[in-house]
Design a protein around this nucleic acid. Structure first.
Lengths: 77, 77
DNA sequence: AAATATTTGTACGTATGTATG
DNA sequence: GCATACATACGTACAAATATT
């Protein structure tokens, strides 16, 4: 049987943001902890850098993380 | 400040191209000068990247600008 | 001190999906 | 059917800040 893959109605970057948010709110990513780098997110979730950045950007806008050039993104308190 | 009328019988990308062209021909955007990036055009004129790119693309075809990947678009002459 | 690696920032190139007029 | 317009997603390239060797 041939099945047809259809794109998810939920954007990938939103799904990734939700995953990271859940990790933050569960304490798996504790306050002050560093998020996976963009490269790591690309590898772990098999997404492009663009998508990884959109997800992290969303968390920034929610005030859940802060990002520093050359350092990374970190969970706020 | 130049604003874009929408909806309009004239495509938004054509209006944006006309605005940028006027800035080039008036010298506001001098030869060698960099155009606003696609992101800046998106923000300044509240258009999508697709629309911003169509406008710049048009200026390319007119020979008014040249574009370099990773650098930006620059006024010719 | 200097070179290298890591990480985020910026920017364009391309393709596809969705919706509207 | 077609053009327009916005959103999503991957790729490539280079710059800037930081950390490591």
């Amino acid at each position: 049987v041939v099945t047809i893959e259809r794109p998810s109605p939920i954007a990938v970057w939103r799904q990734l943001a939700a995953i990271l948010r859940a990790q933050i709110e569960s304490g798996e990513l504790p306050p002050g902890g560093m998020l996976p780098s963009e490269s790591q997110l690309m590898g772990q979730y098999e997404v492009s850098r663009d998508t990884a950045r959109k997800a992290v950007r969303h968390l920034q806008e929610l005030g859940l993380v802060v990002t520093s050039k050359g350092l990374g993104s970190f969970v706020t308190k």
